[in-house]
Design a protein around this nucleic acid. Sequence first.
RNA 1: GCAGGGGUGGGUGAGUGGAUAAAACCGCCAGACUGUAAAUCUGGUGCCUCACGGCUACGCAGGUUCGAAUCCUGCCCCCUGCACCA
Length: 505
Amino acid sequence: MGQRAAHGLGQQHRCAANVRRQPGAHRGDVCAGLQRRSLRQAGKHRPSAALAPGAALRRGGGADRANGPGRGRGAARAGGGGTPMTAKRPEYAHLQQILKRGVAEIIVEREFVDLLNSGRPLRLKQGFDPSAPDIHLGHVVGLRKLRQLQDLGHTVVLIVGDWTAQIGDPSGRSATRPMLSAEQVASNAQSYLQQFFKVVDPKKTEVRRQTEWFDGFDLSDVIRLTRRFTVAQILKRDDFATRFDENQPIAVTEMLYPLLQAYDSVMVQADVEFGGTDQRFNNLLGRELQVQVGQRPQQVFLVPLLVGTDGAQKMSKSLGNYIGIAEPPEQMYGKAMSIPDALILNYFALLTDVPQPELDEYAKALAAGSANPMEMKKRLAEDLVRQFHGSDSAGKAADHFRRVVQEKEHPEDVPSLAVPFSRATASDNDLIAGADGDGVKIHIARVLVRAGLASTTGEARRLLAQGAVRVDGRKLGPDDLIVRAAAESMVQVGARRFVRLVDAG
RNA sequence: GCAGGGGUGGGUGAGUGGAUAAAACCGCCAGACUGUAAAUCUGGUGCCUCACGGCUACGCAGGUUCGAAUCCUGCCCCCUGCACCA
């Protein structure tokens, strides 16, 4: 995906691994999300009959369940390669693990189990909002489930919410739903996929874009869609109900989004939709719409919301209590070490493959006080880093933590700041305060700001006053605004922020 | 359109003429302590300045006053209800 070079209409372009074509779809539609601008300019973006907007809604509610619309799409799929025609049935213990560990609720569990045992490869729907392209551990809980099912032979259908992302939240009230340009969406999607495939198997993934079906939607299609649901139904969603009761605004647009998401399920003929427990309502709506248009209703697989590193709220980027899977190993390890002790077992259960009996041992040891929680967290931190960066990086991150955080040594890689030491006397550089026979004196507050260790000189002064600043290990006081330094001097703020001064010549 | 409520520092939110760079809480930063970057405790937290001091700030623009986040006028924006059903 994201072959950004492939912009010209006539050019060949490739899509993400295994993106599949809808039978009869206009050539190029598959990559529509990335290509739509050029397609539009050329005025050729006519949806095919098969993808005709709203077609599913116009169809009678008749049940062609046996044939299930699209279940006979084997021909198209075969072209995609990689998807086996049958899926493995899980052993009992394996099944229990899939159903119970890291799962909040499965609607309807009985039906889901039947599907798993049918041997038919299932279509596992997972949505993605391109306005938030960073995957953190909270998302990983669900992604791991997808992977487990892929390993049995099932297919993940990733829906890129490119259409809604380009609309955003027109009220402008939600900072988390900005309006994105096609380019932004494309670039976000690219970085998302890169992270996504650290957990999910790309060979068993089908990437689809909402624009494939929503670009051609017209008003009558929208009305047809809204006709399927009542306001009372929509208001049952918890956050709507709450806001309605509290006289908080609810934009009509917002009520539309769940409908669109439900329509996605219809378009990809999802067998199961995955999401956090906060997606319960939306996913059930998809189930409902599928029944209405004669599809087999999708199962709803809900995973618990992971508690963030603050130990209180759900992990989210906007709350700043997250661990991103694209973060550097050291940072990931460190953040994992900072979770409250009470979260250790939860993280092990939801984010690692450490077998259950072993987890039971951990729980016992923790309760009895016979294990040091710190050691256990180290095991957790290393396991997590290994999953996203490999064993080598995990080992290095562990080593880095021990040396820098626990033994308070300098890290190996310290960013540097250029200071013109060697031509200090002639310099009018504002970092240099003066020079004499004994060496160079620098303006430490400005150095801290320039190095990014403080955001303003006022803050730098405060840090000095608090005894947080060291130069070559020597602690500075509130009056030490002008201090001696030299090339290779190590400037340190707090326990773990360093910068090395180098000569700018 | 009518009526009512509201717009304060990174967030929530107090403050209704002066002692207020503006309570409190959260967040953030630092110090101590420790088993960690956990918990706890302590301190700090608009910008510039070595300093004296200066500057900016309570939706926007004016005004009253020795003095305004606080009063007046106009404007902008948000919310709720009513009206409107095109």
